[in-house]
């Protein structure tokens, strides 16, 4: 029962974070919200007894994808400044 409440609350957190990621005006903030949502998803996976998936989500989904987004953002930013 306990894990159910934890999971439901975390799902709500992910839901709110994803809305923030979509609605935020600033791209950098969006990326950060997406990253946070990924981390919370990883926590839900732990609660739901999926340690392998949680590791993957944390390493690849939250870590690596965020890096890709940041670098792509900075590259576009750099191009913008050059013009």
């Amino acid at each position: 029962m306990n894990s159910l409440y934890i999971a439901s609350i975390f799902i709500f957190v992910v839901f709110v974070l994803s809305i923030l990621a979509i609605e935020s005006k600033n791209i950098l903030k969006s990326i950060l919200f997406l990253s946070a949502a990924s981390i919370f998803t990883a926590i839900i996976f732990v609660v739901w007894k999926a340690p392998d998936v949680a590791m993957t989500e944390a390493a690849i989904g939250a870590g690596f994808t965020t890096f890709l987004f940041f670098i792509a953002y900075f590259k576009v930013d750099k191009l913008e400044k050059e013009n």
């Binding site: 340690p51 392998d52 949680a54 590791m55 993957t56 390493a59 690849i60 870590g63 690596f64």
Partner: peptide, 14 residues
């Protein structure tokens, strides 16, 4: 143990 090629590979890339 939990983990494997994809997770370990990401850590090496990190």
């Amino acid at each position: 143990t939990p983990g494997g090629g994809f997770q370990g590979g990401t850590i090496v890339a990190a």
